[in-house]
Design a protein around this nucleic acid. Structure first.
Length: 632
RNA sequence: GGGCAUGUGGCGCAAUUUGGAUAGCGCAUCUGGCUUCGGACCAGAUGGUUGCGGGUUCAAAUCCCGUCAUGCCCGCCA
């Protein structure tokens, strides 16, 4: 069903279309153009507005004022839209506040925790990949940005009727892991803290050794690299154990933030499942890949960039003329593996992974993992894939898309979304897990430390306010507030924006912040409790008590939740939800200040309004992964 | 050499996809507001040639051309 704001927008557009077709039969303006012309005007102009007459004025060779007046005159007076008038060429109208309030309340009360949801996904299966942290380090703030975006966009797509599969890609091969294994074998330190933290510190030590001219070490690392590429060696088994231990430590952190997955896919299992051979077969059959017998790329498998350039102008002007898929020594490049993996995601390979349960999750759902000794399950085979990957990898992600176009699957290329997010840096320096800049002077830039800081600040604030009826709840309440602060801060801005991490803004509890939203929710709840609010139905007479003040502004804000959700899904941007939440919350706070509820003859209506507000707010916060609290 | 992203009051962001009325919000600064449902709040004020220069248009932060700055990418690394 359509949301209240979309419903009324549609009715407004239909009314205009009707009047327009009579006054200007040959205008050539269609319904979509009318819908695009509709916006929410400043309060004094009404509740809804269209600028279509201004656009039409040129075609009609009349002034905008004349055109809009003619359209207004032709709109039949009826129902939920009233007071239609002309101003400066705009067509402005007001809602019948009683009727619209009824429409909004009924939508909220019938849908409850589904209020604001949408059916645009039509049950299609989508796989979302995030955050793919290498299994040799802790989750630092840049990984956290990835993880939160991925988690939130999964929530949003799920709320839009997509069937979402949350997948995490584990890169347990490659140079980084070889270096980690070298450290494990050669450094004398033993794990004495959270394992991912410890392993990350070891990795930094190894890199310092290498940088200090460790030619001998470099040789040893490369020989390790060769042995782990073969997935059946002792080394690769040992490394997998280390990696699993690290992943489990990382999960502790992610779970605390409320970030969950359905399946882990290990790079070593991609190799084992021989996806690559089948991907190459497809590539050669479609004439996409070539194997030059001479020249610079002799012995490699390549794709000519001139082919790619046909689909992606931005890849022109490269310094090379080919992209290597398989190296001359037979080893696959990252692009090869990723292409093969994506063929699997879209169900184009008949190869199957084997899975087993990896661990339980606090949300009650098991986390599965690919594993050599597992059994087949139904992961993958999706209609759409969203990859939350840093902007630095745009070039490679673009090539993967183009490879799909080259094998004649433009449809898949269109369904493969690189949700790129900007770098997270520290003031003045880049955040590097290799160089160890994530280890700060007085505190590390890890997700663990950040959460500790946020929770302890929340605990201070909670104790100062002294509002908790039961002091033993301080811990869980502070946890929720801390998570809200961090999640809101990381999600409120567009993913593309580069972000400079600062403790001050990450721990902001005022203004545009998570705690501000939670605070608003607790105040609302308190009013209902004091007022003895029980049911969710509002007597039809009570709607007559709605005024033209901040109460109706709140009704309108609640009514447009669904629009925000669809826009967020369409743009892959949780920030749209954060923006909406701020608008909703601010509107409520104004209502709360300006209108009494319990000592008012409009008590029934206003309590119903607050109830609808709380449902809407908590639904929207849930999309950002923020849960509400009763007191704080 | 080529490509991509970003550029909006002192600071952090929104609005750019689909051009519309006075460019919104927060922080900071200044002024008010709790004997009344929770002050992590609200009201008001100060602060903007939307990087710069052209163009299109009745109308440009938004579209087009040029240009500057910052960051990232263009590897038989991942």
């Amino acid at each position: 069903m359509t949301s209240p704001s979309e419903e009324i927008k549609l009715r407004f557009a239909t009314a205009i279309e009707f009047a327009l077709s009579k006054a200007y039969p040959n205008s050539g303006i269609d319904k979509q153009q009318i819908l695009n012309s509709i916006s929410t005007p400043k309060r004094e102009f009404g509740d809804i507005s269209s600028s279509i007459a201004i656009r039409l004025s040129k075609i009609a060779k009349r002034s905008p004022k004349e055109v809009s007046a003619a359209i207004v005159a032709g709109i039949p007076k009826s129902g939920i839209i009233k007071d239609i008038n002309e101003a400066n060429g705009y067509i402005n109208a007001s809602f019948n506040e009683v009727e619209y309030s009824k429409m909004v309340f009924e939508a909220v009360n019938s849908l409850k925790e589904r209020y604001g949801s949408s059916d645009i996904g039509r049950g299609e299966k989508v796989i979302v990949e995030y955050p793919s942290i290498n299994p040799n380090k802790p989750c630092v703030v840049s990984h956290l940005r990835n993880a939160l975006i991925g988690d939130s966009i999964s929530n949003i797509l799920g709320f839009c009727s997509y069937e979402v599969e949350r997948e995490d890609y584990i890169d347990n091969l490659g140079l980084q892991m070889a270096e980690t294994l070298w450290g494990w074998k050669n450094l004398s330190d033993k794990p004495d803290k959270k394992f991912d933290q410890w392993l990350g510190e070891q990795y930094v030590i190894v890199n310092k050794r290498l940088e200090a001219g460790g030619e001998e070490i470099k040789g040893q690392v490369h020989s390790i690299l060769r042995t782990i590429e073969n997935t059946d060696t002792e080394e690769s088994k040992e490394l997998r154990e280390i990696a699993e231990r690290c992943i489990k430590a990382q999960r502790e952190t992610l779970f605390r933030y409320g970030i969950y997955h359905d399946v882990l896919i290990w790079e070593s299992d991609i190799v084992r499942a021989r996806l690559l051979e089948k991907a190459l077969e497809i590539g050669f059959k479609k004439g996409v890949f070539e194997r030059p017998s001479e020249g610079k790329y002799a012995g490699c498998v390549v794709v000519k960039l001139e082919k790619i350039a046909k689909f992606a102008k931005e890849l022109e002007g490269s310094r090379e003329d080919s992209k290597v898929i398989i190296r001359s020594n037979g080893a696959a490049t990252y692009i090869a593996k990723d292409f093969a993996f994506h063929l699997w995601k879209f169900g184009l390979l008949d190869s199957e992974f084997y899975y087993r349960e990896f661990m339980g999750q606090p949300n009650g759902r098991a986390l599965f993992t690919t594993a050599p000794d597992g059994k087949p399950m139904g992961f993958g085979n999706v209609k759409k894939a969203v990859n939350v990957i840093a902007v630095q990898q745009s070039y490679e992600q673009r090539i993967i898309k183009v490879l799909f176009s080259l094998i004649g699957r433009e449809d898949i290329a269109d369904s493969l979304v690189h949700l790129s997010y900007g770098m997270v840096n520290l003031e003045g320096i880049t955040l590097s897990t290799r160089k160890g800049t994530w280890m700060g002077k007085d505190r590390d830039y890890t997700a663990d430390v950040l959460l500790e800081e946020a929770v302890s600040k929340a605990l201070d604030a909670t104790e100062r306010s002294g509002k908790l009826s039961d002091g033993s709840k301080a811990g869980s309440v502070s946890e929720a507030i801390g998570i809200a602060a961090i999640r809101f801060e990381f999600l409120r801005m567009s993913p593309k924006k580069p972000m400079v991490f600062s403790w001050d803004s990450a721990l902001s509890f005022e203004g545009n912040s998570g705690p501000y939203c939670l605070y608003s929710h607790t105040r609302a709840g308190k009013v209902l409790r004091k007022g003895g609010y029980v049911g969710s139905s509002v007597g039809s007479g009570a709607y007559e008590k709605v005024s033209r003040g901040d109460d109706f502004e709140l009704v309108k804000a609640i009514g447009s939740a669904g629009e925000a959700v669809e826009e967020a899904a369409y743009e892959y941007s949780p920030g749209v939800i954060a923006d909406y939440i701020i608008r909703l919350t601010t509107t409520f706070n104004r209502f709360y200040e300006s209108m009494q509820v319990l000592n008012s003859d409009a008590k029934e209506f206003r309590m119903g309004l607050i109830h609808a507000y709380m449902i809407t707010l908590s639904n929207m916060l849930a999309l950002l992964g923020i849960r509400t609290v009763d007191e704080m």
